[in-house]
Write a protein that binds this DNA or RNA. Structure first.
Length: 586
RNA sequence: GCGCCCAUAGCUCAGCUGGAUAGAGCACCCGCCUUCUAAGCGGGCGGUCAGGGGUUCGAAUCCUCUUGGGCGUGCCA
């Protein structure tokens, strides 16, 4: 409808230009908006005001020239109001046509082909596999999932990917932590390093290793501790040097093969847990991309080599630097450290190059906002690698703080003192968690109120929307109890019987759904869907309170029922996009 | 210091790419269940859109400065 009106205005302007009533060189952006106030009709355009100056006429005069040219069989009336707005009142039968559309399309209502099948990769969560996901990861997970689902709904070919940081020092610390626990189980007298990973999953893995491999990895305490610098807390101790010493010994004593078994064992345990956790959270990835695979397949070396050939790499202080300043970064960045270890950034160069090599037209990375400084250097690398940096869009998600009883829940990743995503789901439920995480604009800091998310009351916004959905189901049950049979065809044939104000409001809200999906998808803003659904639910609740649906007269009854069922379907489709269930009873 | 983000009702936040009288929810006050679920509905209270300047028919929205917060600024990931 919006586009239809825009076209009408376009052709009306053309006519006026041909008649010489408007200068030829005007090319306004035709803007048609939904009105906020019903007295302003259904749609309004500001073209007259935009054209006032170039046309050398008063806005209202321009509007009056346009008005007679805009009449249409879908428009009830056109008014000129305020400073020069042209207000369009759409005919009721046009407005109610959306009910037919919803009935026809069902769960596809709201979907479109705006993306035209373009392939998009959305990479999100990508938390280091060094432990279970915690609530901090939850927001990125929920947000990324919604962005991906929304893009899919508007016709993009979406691939969800989790980048597994399974290479590097943190993983070595993890593997060594497991080994130390394993040694403890073997009754070797070793002290667990201060910088090691705590947590049950470390013990679990070490027990599994012992069960499966016996004492294959057992070494004496003297061997394990040989030449290892003192740990923190001891005299002259340094926890970093200490753990690095242990890692070195672990690799030397166990050999590549056995060390890898432990490394892989703990990685498998953690990844399995993360996958299960996310799946229960309603999020499934098409691909889990291993950072290690980038090294093993030589892609990291190839990327560095490519930069070298282009003269974009130099050596300084024993390290290898990438001249990212040539591409707008603040300073050059190290890709290979003086100890020969490649940086995380080096694998990221290869990774982003590889993403585009795989044929994605657009790649989206969802990162924590604390990584925002990282964006320029990745884009610089993409340019240097002869790939288009504009193909990458980085979406930043601010942290969420948990509040319980009005108090901020203190969290630190140190020594397992954090609330896990699983605990959160168990405490507030998946629906509330998904909903709360995307309720706020992603780049906004947010306070996650546990008590509110948990509360089974009117204070909880999730229930408000779910309740509206359930209510319609309750009405349909009631219908059967009263001995009526729902007749959809009769309802659709009698939509003109729906003349109440509440019915107009409801149907108008429903008509906004497709554009809301499109808006939320294109702008990567799932919170728009949250706000929309609240509005739709409100329209339904108000209608419910004002009018009985199950009336004696069959035509009116079925017309009302088909309307509320369409509203229910719309609520369901919207909730689905947020990963929230649509219950039939509560 | 430099860079990025943010500031709207008592609280938590919307405000679509510049539009008409700045909106919700919660909290608070007043009403509505013999009628389809009251996890609901209706009404009320509540604002110098952080502050100054600018752009124009029109600014919460765009530009600029100030103030006040958050984050980043590693041969960490």
């Amino acid at each position: 409808m919006k586009q239809h009106i825009a076209h009408r205005i376009q052709s009306a302007l053309q006519t006026l230009i041909e008649q010489g009533q408007l200068p030829e060189d005007i090319a306004p952006r035709i803007q048609v908006d939904r009105t906020k106030d019903k007295s302003h009709g259904d749609f309004a355009s500001n073209v007259a005001m935009m054209l006032a100056k170039p046309a050398g006429k008063a806005p209202r005069a321009v509007a009056e020239m346009l008005q007679p040219l805009l009449t249409d069989d879908q428009i009830e009336k056109i008014e000129i109001a305020g400073p020069g707005f042209i207000n369009f009142f759409v005919k009721a039968e046009e407005k109610f046509a959306v009910v037919n559309e919803v009935v026809e399309k069902g769960e596809d209502f709201g979907r479109s082909n705006a993306g035209q099948g373009a392939s998009v990769q959305v990479e999100f969560v990508s938390a280091n596999p060094t432990g279970p996901l915690h609530v901090g990861h939850g927001r990125g997970a929920a947000y990324g999932a919604c962005v991906a689902d929304l893009l899919e709904a508007v016709g993009y070919d979406v691939a969800r990917e989790y980048y597994v940081n399974d290479a590097g020092r943190q993983m070595d610390i993890l593997a060594t932590s497991v080994w130390m626990r394993y040694l403890d189980l073997c009754e070797v007298a070793v002290t667990f390093p201060k910088n090691g990973y705590q947590g049950d999953y470390i013990w679990t893995t070490s027990r599994e290793l012992l069960a499966e491999h016996g004492e294959q990895f057992k070494r004496s305490a003297d061997e394990v501790m040989a030449n290892v610098p003192a740990d923190e807390g001891e005299e002259g101790g340094d926890k970093e040097a200490h753990i690095d010493g242990l890692i070195e010994n672990a690799k030397a004593l166990l050999g590549e093969t056995d060390y890898r078994i432990i490394h892989k064992a703990v990685l498998d345990v953690i990844l399995t847990d993360i996958k299960e956790d996310l799946s229960e959270f309603g999020i499934d990835f098409q691909n889990w991309f291993s950072e290690r695979s980038l090294f093993e397949s030589g892609l990291v070396d190839a990327a560095i080599e490519k930069l070298q050939q282009k003269g974009l790499v130099y050596e300084k202080g024993g390290a290898l630097w990438f001249k990212s300043t040539d591409f707008g970064d603040e300073k050059d960045r190290v890709v290979v450290r003086d100890n020969g270890i490649k940086t995380y950034f080096a694998s990221d160069i290869a990774y982003h190059f590889n993403k585009l090599e795989r044929g994605f037209e657009k790649i989206i990375d969802v990162w924590g906002a604390d990584h925002h400084g990282y964006v320029p250097r990745v884009k610089a690398a993409m340019t240097a690698m002869d790939t288009n940096p504009d193909a990458l869009e980085v979406l930043l998600v601010q942290f969420a703080s948990l509040f319980r009883g009005g108090e901020k829940v203190a969290m630190s990743t140190r020594s397992g003192q954090f609330v896990t995503l699983r605990e959160l789901r168990e405490e507030v439920g998946t629906d509330a968690a998904r909903f709360f995480y995307v309720m706020r604009k992603s780049e906004q800091h947010m306070d996650f109120d546990l008590d509110l998310a948990k509360s089974q009351s009117n204070e909880n916004p999730v229930y408000y929307i779910q309740y509206a959905h359930a209510r319609v189901s309750a009405v349909m049950n009631q219908l059967v109890d009263k001995g009526f049979i729902y007749d959809e065809a009769m309802g659709l044939a009698n939509l003109e019987r729906l003349t109440e104000e509440h019915e107009d409001t409801l149907v108008t809200a429903m008509a906004k759904f497709p554009e809301t999906v499109n808006n939320a998808a294109m702008n990567h803003e799932p919170h728009l869907m949250v706000h929309y659904l609240r509005e739709l639910a409100h329209a339904l609740h108000s209608y419910y309170n004002a009018h009985a649906f199950i009336v004696d007269e069959a035509e009116l009854r079925n017309a009302r029922l088909v309307l509320v069922k369409a509203a229910q379907q719309t609520l369901k489709n919207g909730l689905k996009l947020l990963g929230v269930s649509a219950p039939d009873s509560m």
